[in-house]
């Protein structure tokens, strides 16, 4: 059995004004709501005293209990009982103490996970962090993911909030690091002003970047396209409708030949006047050569009649050529 090492701390009543309440080197809190904790402290007081380290200037630095301290300050407390860690308590131990304190009572958001990893990087090798710390943070254990999380801190505050609130996909955020500040803020605006699924975000950001590269424009210019702005300002559309419309606009710009082919195929079919319940489905992306015919019927006789009608339908023999006049650019 492992020998238990007792934490040698001393309890002390500390003036709030003597505590440095800026997010310090052990802080792993981002985008939090103090309301519930303030309500709890208001009713029952601080059940677990914060842990502090004494700084050289006779002030204190927060090791654990950052939110509790902010709450009591907002509640107007002048002082608070704290656990003071010994002077020889190392920064790495302090970091682990805070990490463990947080892990037992709450979940980290993705920005906070990035903060934890960023702080660990000062003390440990990347391999060690991947093996020993990423699993406890519920993160896929590989260096690529580690780099993704480490890079989150460089992003702008607005983007970090979107990530923390899970309104912006982490994968998209990782991708955003490769593009300029103005462009990524514009993408963040677009994705968070409407409700996009993470898959839609991922597909769309690629299209936007590829359109910009192909047309020699900035990402912002692609997003600020007149048609997209019209959709965004359309009061008669709800958010999912707007997302759908923007996806359609971007897809048409990203895949003009494919869209033209789809349009021609649809037009060709509509000229055929297929009976209700009959569908002709082209191969996905027109890549294969097999088309499918779908007939909905309830009785065999009905099927026979549909087939006889289709047999005599003029133009049906050209169905596989409907899309082939597509001009591509």
């Amino acid at each position: 059995m492992m020998k238990k090492e007792l934490l040698k701390s001393t309890i002390l009543n500390v003036d709030i004004s003597d505590i440095d309440l800026k997010p310090g080197p052990f802080c792993m809190s981002f985008n939090f709501n103090l309301k519930p904790i303030k309500a709890s402290i208001g009713k029952f007081g601080v059940l677990n005293p914060p842990y502090l380290l004494k700084k050289s200037d006779s002030n204190f630095i927060v090791v654990a209990g950052y939110r509790r301290l902010l709450s009591v300050k907002e509640l107007g407390w002048k002082d608070i009982l704290c656990q003071i860690l010994p002077n020889d308590f190392s920064p790495f131990q302090a970091l682990l103490l805070n990490l463990n304190d947080n892990l037992i009572h709450r979940k980290f958001n993705n920005i906070e996970k990035g903060m934890v990893l960023q702080r660990l990087i000062g003390f440990l090798k990347r391999e060690e962090i991947v093996t020993n710390f990423m699993p406890i943070l519920n993160i896929a254990t590989n260096k690529q993911t580690l780099e993704l999380f480490l890079g989150l801190e460089e992003l702008e505050e607005e983007i970090k909030v979107s990530i923390a609130e899970e309104r912006l996909s982490l994968r998209v955020a990782g991708f955003m690091r490769n593009i300029g500040r103005d462009d990524r803020l514009r993408i963040n605006d677009l994705f968070t002003s409407l409700k996009w699924t993470f898959n839609q975000q991922w597909e769309t950001i690629q299209w936007i970047i590829e359109i910009a590269s192909r047309e020699g424009r900035t990402i912002k210019e692609v997003i600020d396209d007149r048609h997209i702005i019209e959709v965004l300002n359309n009061d008669r559309m709800n958010n999912p409708q707007k997302v759908k419309a923007i996806v359609k606009i971007l897809k048409a710009r990203r895949f003009p030949s494919l869209l033209e082919a789809e349009k021609l195929f649809k037009k060709g079919l509509s000229n055929l006047s297929l009976p209700l319940g009959v569908k002709i489905i082209p191969p996905p992306f027109f890549e294969g050569i097999d088309y499918r015919l779908e007939i909905v019927f309830t009785k065999g006789q009905e099927l026979k009649e549909e087939l006889a009608y289709l047999y005599n339908l003029p133009g049906l023999e050209e169905v596989t050529d409907f899309w082939k006049g597509a001009e591509h650019r």
Binding site: E210, S213, R214, R254, F255, P256, S257, L258, A261, P284, F285, F286, E287, G288, K324, A326, H328
Partner: peptide, 17 residues
Amino acid sequence: NGEFVPGLDGKFRYFKP
């Protein structure tokens, strides 16, 4: 930057035309 679509073997290829 080209128009790639999924091929029958799982690889992306330029749209057939």
